[in-house]
Design a protein around this nucleic acid. Sequence first.
DNA 1: ACGTTTCCAGGAAACGTTTCCAGGAATGTA
DNA 2: TACATTCCTGGAAACGTTTCCTGGAAACGT
Lengths: 348, 348
Amino acid sequence: MGTRPGEDQPRGRITMRDVATRAGVGLATVSRVINDKPGVAAELVERVNEAARALGYRHDVTASSLRRADRRTATIALVLEDVANPFSSALHRAVEDAAHAEDILVLTGSSDEHPERERELIDTFTLRRVDGLIVIPAGGTDGQLATVRRQGTPIVCVDRLVELDRVDTVTVDNREGTRAAVRRLLDLGHRRIAFLGDMRSIWTARERYQGYAEAHAGAGRPVDERLVRRDIRSAEAAERATGEILTADDPPTAVFAAQNLLTIGGLRALQHLGLHDRVALIGFDDFPLADMLRPGVSVVSQDPAEIGLMAARLLLGRINGGDHRPARHAVVPTGYIARGSGEIPPAR
Amino acid sequence: MGTRPGEDQPRGRITMRDVATRAGVGLATVSRVINDKPGVAAELVERVNEAARALGYRHDVTASSLRRADRRTATIALVLEDVANPFSSALHRAVEDAAHAEDILVLTGSSDEHPERERELIDTFTLRRVDGLIVIPAGGTDGQLATVRRQGTPIVCVDRLVELDRVDTVTVDNREGTRAAVRRLLDLGHRRIAFLGDMRSIWTARERYQGYAEAHAGAGRPVDERLVRRDIRSAEAAERATGEILTADDPPTAVFAAQNLLTIGGLRALQHLGLHDRVALIGFDDFPLADMLRPGVSVVSQDPAEIGLMAARLLLGRINGGDHRPARHAVVPTGYIARGSGEIPPAR
DNA sequence: ACGTTTCCAGGAAACGTTTCCAGGAATGTA
DNA sequence: TACATTCCTGGAAACGTTTCCTGGAAACGT
């Protein structure tokens, strides 16, 4: 019974059949053992495992999922705006961890907010038969998402609200977070508060503006449209816009920047004009080193890890059988981090 | 010839066989058409495409790669330290773009620098039959990498040098980048330059220290071991270490931080002691907002996008046939970005 | 007109697995 | 002891594709 090297070593790739032959059992039995199915005599289990180990057998997940009744591939896909941006990548990490706990792999792709690219990614992923999809929708792909959903793939949309049958969403309380922050500025005595907003085609951008408007309405103060700049798409544009507003007649005493890059742009403009200690600034969404700046930048914070975890939970829940449930719309609360820039009182 | 709805619509999943039936051709012909293989009459190509479109046929990549002679899955895997850290995610993005250009999907995983987790990831990925692997090796997995390589999967190692047969590497010039930066400090008149270093088990950490030592040797200056702290693994630890060095007798007039987090830690310590305008600081690796701080933080910069692109090119090159070549070791140059903190002269 | 080569098409086998099914042994019951 | 039931086991079919191979038709040369 010696294991002389190369004895009954099969030449090509080692398959279940090889293991079966060496263990002296049938192919079906090997499959049962590999998949931990009950009802195989202990002795055979032992023999099969031993043979598999000796031969260096490696289970082929691809072939397996092809035949498998539930057709599961143990893969989920994540369509992000850009894997390299901090929000996306923190989300990605949280999803990876949750998936890893169930031995599920994560495929990712960056849409760059292009509906066309997003469509392509969703297409590629479903072609690969992923078990589920987490998407930060750029908009314009609702029809496709609905189709994919109808064909059986569970979907969770993140960051932006989507109303589709049995599609869960995880969003952040954009409106309330913004309202509360702007309310703080008003309570501090600010009367002229500028608003820097992202593309209006984006749901979160609209919601945040609503929060800004609601805070004003709640305090019985009108919004001065000359202080509102929307559809800004880069830090540079934000810097320009902020500069213009600040150097015009009757400038604001505070700035609310409704997105990460816009906050940076606004900050640059303030520093450039030497106003960073005299004009208040609050940004939506935290960023690294915000506490190291002078003054520290106060922000409305959202927790991407929490969002990702929630999304993964909802998705995995559906994958593991609970797919009949109606859509759930989870809302993760925002926080406020006071670091100084939001606490500057209005200049006389 | 009308297309009455549901006419010869097959019930379950639409397969090539369905397309073949509808187009009135053989299964093999459909396969040829779908794969753009030459030698099919134009009319049949037309009929097949038409049938595929009408039925909404979707090619099953999984089944395809199972039978396919080259067994390619059009997937590569990327083992990172953490998908959420800026260096990793910038690299990820560059790899994604390069892969996307060839319709290749990217699987990713975070090793957190744990050899055990890294081993597990590599295992999972090869089980899925990825066509190639890009790894930031945590160390301790060389044997496994060699095995995987021998079994045919091309591998590119990034960021850290690895000497394995037909395994390419992409690294940056850690030693020279550090040497040049420290040399600048010496030229500015600094004589006491502290060094904050990462875990010595990491190749880059060792290289950077070498650069620091070489700069001193080149200027005929001894290294004062009391100013050298290595094996630091967090921003907090770096902050503590810097604080200790700065408050001891005969403190340094400049600090070189050999890694991202350590730079932040050092910076915090300097600010805390009110020395940020009097003690010079240079960090290895750029970080967002470094220019917004007071003073701006000077850094030795590496270009993760360039690194990722290079790694992807090497990998795709091997995948597309050039796998016989011996290992190539690409070295991407570093830069220096002067922002102020590195240009502070020694205090009298 | 005939034989040879070239080309295209389709049936069947194969990829590595899971699942169906049937058969044999073992156990339980009358 | 005879018969029904339960439990294990392995052969064969199936998953959706690609590739091998055979055969007929067309094209060519003499």
